[in-house]
Design a protein around this nucleic acid. Structure first.
Lengths: 196, 196
DNA sequence: TAATTAATGTAGGGGTCACTACATAAAAGC
DNA sequence: GCTTTTATGTAGTGACCCCTACATTAATTA
């Protein structure tokens, strides 16, 4: 029993909010939060500002919806990569390679939506992105800590810093081969980093 | 015989452009290009917009002056670090450590002015920062290539990607110990990366 | 059919952005 | 002293930003 649009009274929507979130995700990913205006969004959605604000409350509100949606679409599936049945170093190396692949997959929307969002100039949007990013970093940290408690903090920092670098360089135009080579060099030091 | 203000005709300036560049450098470094308005700059300098535009032409014009000035102030002295008389891996590791130190030196102006500038939303300012960043990356590449031509491209990418990550994380609040630990983990893999 | 509910389209508000027209002030050259 | 040159202060400009007031339209409910 999913809430079926919370009673169907009133004039029906002329657009699908879920589709709108997907369109917005694309725009935010391609250009970054600050460089996408509400006009850009309403134009892309074919709606007028009042419809936009009735549905999403604010630009940052829509961005929060996009971040929620992200877990099911563009986000790296940490569940599948940070496996208990493989060496930690191998899993983290696979994580970096997967990041490289995803960040370079679409040259028009390079890098990580969330990592880039943590650096925008709107306080609300930035905090939402930071919260999501912290959650991901915590999962990486806890995954390492289960088997390497002493080096978890430093290795988790190393991995997340490398991912930030990969995202930045993807946006600076580095293509898949370059990002992948970088990710592999970074991954190659994990075994000794964990041991140290 | 330095050009002494190109003839002293006319009403004298009430501010020193070089001081203004230093003040602007501080503001751009602290908040990023996009988040600093011309009003912020004129307020900080105690001047009015016409004086600002007469002296610098535009906001991006002042930013270009800041980038020129940067080489003599905040920039990492590649000359002194990329030495011919030390192993390449050691020099690059020292470069990463020095980056960590500088990016965390001032929490109010974290990260690298130039790297952060390559990601701003103004086309002129971004291109100026990218040009300067490319020059630095080329120097790193050429330094490596002199002794390790086969791995120069990938190792240079790895080093610059790590620096981008360090700058990003510095701006996300990572302090000196964390950045330094990350830089050292990254530096530890350089010897084998060069050999590979 | 009438009342209620909700989303729409038109039009615009208040603010900030980078930037400038213009008259004035302060120096040097004649 | 008068002209020329340059920087200044006052006071804006148009463009764009995020967001909204308000009347209207289109659906359900009574």
């Amino acid at each position: 029993m999913i809430t079926n649009r919370s009673s169907t009274r009133g004039r029906p929507r002329r657009f699908d909010p879920d589709t709108a979130v997907a369109v917005a995700e694309r725009l935010f990913h391609a250009r970054g939060y600050d460089a996408v205006s509400v006009s850009d969004l309403t134009d892309a959605l074919g709606i007028n500002p009042p419809s936009f604000y009735a549905a999403f409350g604010s630009k940052a509100g829509l961005y929060a919806r996009v971040l929620d949606h992200w877990g099911g679409t563009g986000a790296i599936p940490l569940d599948q990569i940070l496996r208990e049945d493989v060496p930690v170093a191998d899993a983290l190396a696979a994580l970096l390679e997967e990041a490289a692949r995803r960040y370079a997959a679409d040259p028009e929307a390079a890098g990580c939506l969330v990592i880039e969002g943590t650096r925008c100039n709107d306080a609300d949007a930035r905090e939402a992105a930071c919260a999501l990013n912290r959650a991901a970093e915590d999962r990486i940290h806890d995954y390492i800590a289960a088997r390497y408690p002493a080096s978890a903090a430093s290795v988790a920092d190393y991995v997340s810093t490398t991912m930030s670098g990969l995202s930045a360089k993807a946006r600076n135009g580095h293509d898949l081969p370059r990002l992948l080579a970088t990710a592999r060099l970074a991954g190659g030091t994990l075994a000794q980093a964990l041991a140290g």
